[in-house]
Design a protein around this nucleic acid. Sequence first.
DNA 1: CTAGGTGCAAATAATTTGCAGAGGC
DNA 2: GCCTCTGCAAATTATTTGCACCTAG
Lengths: 324, 324
Amino acid sequence: MTSLSDLTRLKPAGGKRSSKREHIVNVFLSQEGHLSADDLVDRIRNEDSRISRATVYRTLQWMVEAGIARKVDFGEGRFRFEHSYRQPRHFHLICKTCHRSFEFLSSDIEALVEEVASARSFAATQSVVQIYGTCEECRTGRSTNLADGHTDLLFARDALRIAIATERSGLEFYSRAARLTRDARGKKVFEDLAEEEKEHLGTLEARYNELLQRDPQLESRPTFLFFKGAANGLFAEGADRLARGVNDQQALLIGIRCERGSHRFFKKYGDRFEDSEGKQIFLEFADEERQHLELLIREYRALVKRQGRARRPGRTGSPTRAAR
Amino acid sequence: MTSLSDLTRLKPAGGKRSSKREHIVNVFLSQEGHLSADDLVDRIRNEDSRISRATVYRTLQWMVEAGIARKVDFGEGRFRFEHSYRQPRHFHLICKTCHRSFEFLSSDIEALVEEVASARSFAATQSVVQIYGTCEECRTGRSTNLADGHTDLLFARDALRIAIATERSGLEFYSRAARLTRDARGKKVFEDLAEEEKEHLGTLEARYNELLQRDPQLESRPTFLFFKGAANGLFAEGADRLARGVNDQQALLIGIRCERGSHRFFKKYGDRFEDSEGKQIFLEFADEERQHLELLIREYRALVKRQGRARRPGRTGSPTRAAR
DNA sequence: CTAGGTGCAAATAATTTGCAGAGGC
DNA sequence: GCCTCTGCAAATTATTTGCACCTAG
């Protein structure tokens, strides 16, 4: 339901005036799914006013330029248009039976596509991934809640889920580390880290719940963002060292590594997406990890100043480089 | 140059007669790249005869049904057609400057696409992956041998390269194993395995060279088949056990595991592709691995019958299950 | 007043179709 | 002779354009 007035006010900036263009934009934005130019004309004629097909085509073109709409080609011999403003660019599943289309995003596919392009020294500007076939509903008859809600919400939901999973795995890791560590100060460091993760986790979960408020069915909607190996392995780093005993400096170094991994991961993926709420979540999360990271680094430096450089056991590579 | 007469004789079966349809098909097959219906009409009119546009459209449609041509949509507002007979289905890089398109195949992307479809319980029948941008030639001015040769040849080349790489890594593994193994009979087993790999490697290389004969530039053409993790890790299995000493039975078990891994790998990927020379290569390779595997299993059984079950060192899981 | 927005009808462009004649078996 | 293929011209579909008119700043 993304407040239309907002959108219309935010975007129409493009260079030109508006009048019934306003109206076309409104009708477009109030419709879900992928409309063809003709669909739009119909909807508008139903609503009320009498608008020429040519105007709709011209406005559609302008909307694409203005970043409100995106032109998509499902191979039907005509184009369709989808919302673009703060909707992440995505891929499509296209049902040949009911002619509906469903959206998804796969960072993994995106990464591979980039790899291919670069292997061929091809400067890619855009990529299209479309899966044609038959949707569940058309095969089984049952209705399946697959209807795409607003992509932006789904994206935000999945970004948060990933962030939460990451945070959870961090919490688990630090808790286990605290349990395993004998050195009292090392243990304390891990306990503090765990505490911070727990707090942060709370924030994320609150935000997730807030998101659910906006759309009661949000949680049951199918995965939008396919993202392999999120949260996996980010916190494995240094785990083996725990058994060998870890003091406070070393515990901090481990924490620093984990947080840095996490920060980089979310920064990288946040950067990759188009402007949208989900992107914000990734970047905010990356930023929080960065802040946390910096705090840990300061703490580590203070500790080193106070105690001198680590006194065994287990080398941790060059601590200087690690803390840089 | 895939012998045209062959193709025309092999395929035109479709249900109907032929006459100047024959001619259209020939012209189509003799052209490389992606032609639009109009392109085809032009080429034919240049060649000689006077053929109606409608006939070309009708024939094109028939060719698609007959599996000679594939209809592709590069978002230009008209369709293009590419060879399909024994050409693997593939994806495209599309240059927006020179309007040429380049083909590639990525098993990794295909796998991810399948995953997404299955996560959404979508019955996928076809998928489209297109990367739009600017090709190297258009950016740098230099000509770059990127022109797509026949995809089928490229596919065969890359399939062979992967098979060869796998075989090499197998050879290396068995040689190292032979070097490390003290037990005389275990050593002998690995030496034999290495010998067999070497022989097989020779066959593959001969075939590769034969392929190169067919197109002098073949080797310098860019990668067509993107395929991660081929040859990686297939032979790592059991490597750690080597250090602990391995007898002939255990050596055979390790060999069995490696060959089985290799067989499965190539079978799986061979099955995934469309009819084409590359597919054949994958499947033949899989089959050879299977034969080799069966041989090893027979050998293992004979050994067990002769010696009784393994007498240490190092458990190898349940040998019975392993040999099944 | 003037740049751009709008409507209508005509133009394009790719592709399809109806129909009468042509050709192969 | 029957059935399918062909050619040609007309139809269809999605989209664009020319031109006269209208409207907001």
